[in-house]
Design a protein around this nucleic acid. Structure first.
Lengths: 263, 263
DNA sequence: ACCTGAACACCGTTCAAGT
DNA sequence: ACCTGAACACCGTTCAAGT
C-alpha cells in the first residue's frame, strides 16, 4: 500500500514465455500454499507473474484448468499407489493397497480434492486407474474368487477407502475454517442422564462414526474377512455356504428384497 | 431489462416484518431451487423481497446463516430417521436404520450438503443425534454385545452410510455441472487387450467402486454379518473365536501392527 | 431497533486491442 | 500467435445513514 506511489508496472512477457505445463505447475504450487478451494485466477496470475487474462488463452475456463490439474493428479496418484509390492498372500496385498490409497490421499489433500471431491470418481478417473484395478482383480481371481466376487470385493474396498478419505478431508476442511471463530457452539456436553451409554463410551475414548484409523481398519477387516471365507468355500467346492450366519448375505447380484433409494 | 426504464423501487419494509426464522425458511426454499452451492446473499435478498444488507442484521456472516440452517437440517434429519420401527431382530432394525439414513440424505440433498459435506459430522451434529445413537447402541448391547463392540458396530455403519452418501452426492453434483459441456473426455474405452477382466466385468454390467445400491448393501452386509458372529460367540461364552478366518481381525482396540496415516 | 443503498474488495470471464 | 488492461456481472461484507 505504501508502494502504491512507486507502482512498478510489470514488463510485458515475451512470446513463448508461457505454456500450459507451467501454468499447471504454478497452479499446484499455489494450491499447496492456499488450498485448492482458495485458488483463484487472479492469484495464479500474480504467482506466475502474468496478466490474469493470459491464462485464459490456454484454458478458456477455470474448469478447464482444474480438469488439466485433475489429469495430473491422477498420474501422480498412480505413481504413489502403483508400486504396491506383492505381499505373501492376497490378503496382505489388498490390505496394504487399501492403506496406501488412503494414506496417499490423506497426505496429499490436493489429490483428494481434485480426484475424489471435485471430479468424484469420474469415468475418466476409472479409466486411468484401469491397469491398477485389473491387476488387483487378477490377483483376487487367482486367489480363487470368481470374477464377480473379485469385482465386488474390490468395489467394497474402494468405496470404503474413498468414503473414509473424503469424510476425513471434509472434517479437516471444516475444522480449519472454523478454528479461530467461536467454534459455532463452544463445548458439547454428552449428559450421562439422557445418554448413559454414550457417556460411558465417551469416557473410554470411543468415538462414534469418525473416519479415523480405528474405524477404517475395522471396516476393511470386515471386507477382507468375508473375502477369505468366499475363497475357502470355493476351495472346498461348496458353491457358497458360510459357516455361521451367512444366510441373508448372498454375494450374488439378485434383485434385492427391499432396497430403498433412487438410481 | 426492458423494465429497467420503469424501474420500480421496492417500498421499504416495515419494522417487524423480518425475523431469523423467515430468513432461514427462505434460504431453504431458495436452496431447494438452486442448490446450496448456488445460494447467494443477494439472491436470498431478492427471494425475501428485502434489501440484501438487512439479512446481515440477523446473521453477521453468511456462515452464521449456514450454521443456523444446519441446525434446522439436523432437526429435520432427526424427524426423518427417528421413527425407525423396531423390527423383530436387531439385525433387521439396524439394517433398516442404515437404509433410512441413506435414503433420507439421498432424497434431501440439502441435508446432505449441510450436515455431511459442510459441517462434516461436527461434534454439534453428534450431540443432536445423541439420543438416536444411544437407542441404537442400547439395542445392540441388549442383543448381547459389549459396549465397545456396539460402538464399533454402529461406528462402522455410520462411516459406511456417510461415506456412500457423500460420494454419491459428489458424483451427482459433478455430473450435473459437466452435463452440457463436452463432458471433459467424451467416451471412455476399456480396451479388452490391456484389461481383459475389467472389459469382461464391464460387459456383465459390473461397476467398480461406485457408491450405488449394490455396493452399499454389500458393505452393510459385511458389517452386520460380523456383528452377528460376535453375538453368537458371546452367547456361547467363548470370549471370541470366529469359526473361520477371524484370526487377524480382532474386535479389540489394540495397538495396530502397521497402521499408516496421520492423526 | 430495525431496514437500506452506496461502496469496497474480490472473483470469473469477455473483449478489444496491443505486440 | 500470443499477451494485456479495461470492463462487466457477480459475490460477501462494511458503513454511514435513513426511519
Amino acid at each position: 500500500m505504501a508502494k502504491r506511489a512507486t507502482a512498478e508496472k510489470r514488463p510485458r512477457r515475451e512470446r513463448g514465455s508461457l505454456n500450459p505445463e507451467d501454468i499447471i505447475d504454478g497452479a499446484f504450487e499455489l494450491a499447496e500454499q492456499v488450498s485448492l478451494d482458495n485458488l483463484s485466477m487472479p492469484m495464479l496470475g500474480k504467482h506466475l507473474d502474468v496478466g490474469v487474462t493470459s491464462i485464459y488463452w490456454y484454458f478458456r475456463k477455470k474448469d478447464d484448468l482444474l480438469n488439466a490439474m485433475t489429469d495430473r493428479a491422477l498420474e501422480r496418484y498412480a505413481t504413489f499407489v502403483s508400486p504396491f509390492v506383492q505381499a505373501r498372500d492376497w490378503r496382505e496385498s489388498l490390505r496394504r493397497h487399501a492403506r496406501t490409497m488412503r494414506s496417499t490421499f490423506l497426505t496429499h489433500p490436493i489429490l483428494c480434492d481434485l480426484i475424489l471431491i471435485r471430479s468424484a470418481l469420474s469415468p475418466r478417473a476409472a479409466q486411468m486407474g484401469a491397469k491398477q484395478t485389473e491387476k488387483v482383480i487378477a490377483n483376487l481371481v487367482e486367489a480363487g474368487l470368481t470374477l464377480e466376487q473379485a469385482v465386488d470385493t474390490y468395489s467394497a474396498v474402494q468405496l470404503h477407502v474413498h468414503g473414509a478419505v473424503v469424510l476425513q478431508r471434509l472434517y479437516d476442511k471444516n475444522k480449519e475454517s472454523e478454528s479461530g471463530a467461536t467454534a459455532y457452539y463452544e463445548n458439547l456436553t454428552i449428559s450421562p442422564e439422557t445418554t448413559p451409554l454414550l457417556a460411558e463410551a465417551g469416557a473410554k475414548g470411543l468415538h462414534s462414526g469418525a473416519p479415523d484409523d480405528h474405524n477404517f481398519e475395522y471396516g476393511l477387516d470386515r471386507i477382507l474377512e468375508y473375502t477369505e471365507r468366499l475363497i475357502a468355500d470355493r476351495a472346498a467346492h461348496k458353491p457358497r455356504a458360510g459357516k455361521s450366519a451367512t444366510k441373508t448375505s448372498a454375494p450374488r447380484r439378485e434383485p434385492k428384497d427391499t432396497t430403498p433409494a433412487r438410481r
